[in-house]
Nucleic acid binder design. Structure first.
Lengths: 298, 298
DNA sequence: CAAGATTATACTCATATTGAGTATAATAAG
DNA sequence: CTTATTATACTCAATATGAGTATAATCTTG
């Protein structure tokens, strides 16, 4: 029952899609092609020894910088195009290098999801909420979802629900990509449109990264070898889209024991010089980094 | 640059692999075929409207019970067989129904990973550790990995590192599946062998589930409509492979506010009758269930 | 039917962690 | 040499967690 039967089975081509992320000047950026309209993607070729090798080989055509960290996001059968393809999406972290492909550019991911940036008051939420509640029109289930995801009070904002928020806007016909599914509103939500489901993939990547930085030391892939604690904090803030409490953030970092002083400090900037730190990569092998929460008995 | 080019691109078939989990009598079980030698898997067929639909359609041939919860695990290019296939693995949760496929059976997952069951002293660890340290033979990096994963002291056991532990044993040639990579030891680690990388996929599923039960209410997919708090606890213990502190576990559950009393109690069993609870499925829409850890400023 | 076994449920309390804020130090700019 | 600016160090109340004890309601058995 496990033999290969090509007769009657679907034989498809495989596309690799990359969400390549970097943080530059407190801005979380993503590598795009077609002037920001699409995520880079390429087809799996016979020469590729593995899926990740294919992705890496492929990404190197567009940026010099080595990709430190690669993680699979999601695989889906592409129904929008020719219904013959399988797409495997990846999240990759690196530092920004010039995009060297025609049409390629690094873009702030908040261009695509402006409502996800809570670091300063954007004033976008009231308009989005008005559109959404109009769509919900007295339907209590929809209203509950809206409240849970876009939270009237803004204090219950959960930064990890990027995908759910995008999907709600999609359902409500408030993003241009929903055109096949619904009548798109005359005044859709702000944010740049993308090809097919690329914005959905980007949302998945953001959500994954926002969740991951809390329990695995992946931020360091986005930082230089040496960095100050403020740079570290601002990189986290860029990803999370929220401002963090400085003293408590430092305590949080110190408690993890993942960084050590280099002995050097910053020079020539305003204010007191900051100590430079480096990531203790040795701990990666020894430690586990899982947020245990169950009340075990010992 | 995004047009379909079949020339020169790899065209492959797609296999769907399911890790279908149920917990029965405090035992975490997984649906297998070939007398426990393989995970159920089927090829994606033209009739399947989506990947998940293909998986569901396919799983229904082997068990009546509807699969409540399905989640994608990982996609990989299969190098072991004909190097032409892509495999997409899924984790599905359900309650155990009779396996109705020839050769199909439900098996405790601890048959495959006996060292992962910490609910009672198994006495297996010393033997495994002896084999592993023999393999590490004075190589400090290997020894550090062994200590971190199999922890000499048994109190630093991290139940989520199922995959890493399996991979370490694989590297050390202590599981039969490693035969292509290494010389398999005369006395390998205990635990039933599986086809190809199926045991690795199972390890991935266990790890994912062990992590997920802590912050998302997925256990309830494995329980009957009504259940006692002890049944809930024992189901969690079965998955986690560890015993939990009863009073604190109840506090943990109550704090989440995910269950409510039905008003009924158990009958005819030893001891004081237990209240029956049900899962408040309504909260699924309203709440977020993400373990925020960052020190936000408000 | 009473005593004991068994399971359920309810509290207690010391310690650790977290949220929120204030105080002091070291530099550059004027 | 004063001020602005950033870095770093503490404080303290509130909350959560780990570990354990006490009491309640049933079944079993002599």
């Amino acid at each position: 029952m496990r033999e290969n039967r090509f007769m009657g089975n679907q034989v498809v081509e495989t596309e690799l899609i990359a969400v390549l992320v970097a943080v530059t000047d407190g801005d979380p950026r993503v590598l795009t092609i077609d002037d920001g309209y699409a995520l880079p993607s390429g087809l799996l070729e016979p020469g590729h020894r593995s899926l990740q090798a294919g992705l890496r080989a492929w990404v190197e055509r567009q940026t010099r910088h080595p990709i430190g960290y690669v993680e699979q996001l999601y695989t889906f059968a592409d129904q929008q195009r020719d219904a013959r393809g399988i797409s495997i999406s990846y999240l990759a972290l690196s530092r920004e290098a010039p995009a060297e492909y025609p049409g390629a550019s690094w873009r702030s991911w908040y261009q695509y999801f402006p409502w996800e940036d809570f670091r300063e008051e954007s004033g976008l939420l009231p308009g989005i909420l008005k559109n959404l509640t109009g769509w919900a029109a007295g339907q209590p289930e929809r209203l509950r979802r809206i409240a849970g995801l876009f939270g009237a009070g803004a204090k219950i904002w959960n930064e990890e629900l990027v995908l759910q928020r995008y999907e709600l806007l999609w359902e409500a016909g408030l993003v241009p990509e929903a055109t096949r599914h619904a009548l798109v509103a005359a005044t859709p939500a702000p944010g740049k449109e993308m090809l097919h489901d690329h914005r959905r993939i980007l949302a998945t990547a953001i959500a994954r990264l926002r969740a991951k930085i809390k329990y695995r030391p992946v931020v360091f892939e986005l930082l230089a070898q040496e960095f100050t604690l403020l740079e570290l904090q601002q990189t986290m803030e860029a990803l999370a889209g929220q401002t963090l409490h400085k003293p408590n953030f430092r305590r949080f970092i110190e408690a993890q024991e993942l960084v050590e002083e280099t002995g050097r400090t910053t020079q020539g900037l305003a204010g007191r010089p900051a100590k430079l730190f480096r990531f203790k990569s040795a701990v990666l092998e020894e430690r586990s980094f899982t947020g245990s929460k169950l009340p075990l008995v010992r």
